[in-house]
Design a protein around this nucleic acid. Structure first.
Length: 110
DNA sequence: GCAGTGACTAGTA
DNA sequence: ATACTAGCCACTG
């Protein structure tokens, strides 16, 4: 199971790891951090290929709408939602996160 | 090596 | 407000 990941993937994982607790980041932000700029799709692709066992807060990564894209499995979304709620992030009735409030400001210092 | 696919985003109708 | 289209690039078959 020694699957080697491209440098891009590692950068993406690293960028995700920079997301502080209680905050969320969009794919675009992660892509920008990883040097992919607008290639948010690659971020999603990387997460899709994300191996189990790595301590990556992938649940803090959501789309630009503040909604959880995630896999087609409803349970999977529930897990992500639960993890976010556990960090104090609230969801609207639409199941969306208030990006204006919880969006990680990459410019901000920890 | 070519074609298809994708956990997206921004723009247009 | 929602629905559809185009663009972007890496991974898979």
């Amino acid at each position: 199971m020694n699957k080697q990941f491209s440098e891009i993937y590692l950068k993406i994982y690293d960028a995700i790891g920079q997301i502080p607790y209680g905050k969320v980041a969009t794919y675009g932000q992660i892509a920008e951090k990883a040097g992919l700029r607008g290639q948010a799709r690659l971020v999603g692709y990387a997460l899709y290929s994300l191996p189990d066992g790595l301590d990556i807060p992938w649940h803090r990564v959501i789309n630009a709408k503040g909604e959880i894209s995630a896999l087609p499995d409803p349970d999977w979304r529930g897990i992500q939602k639960g993890l976010l709620e556990a960090e104090g992030i609230r969801f609207n009735q639409n199941g969306r996160v208030d990006l204006k409030q919880y969006r990680w400001d990459s410019k901000s210092k920890l």
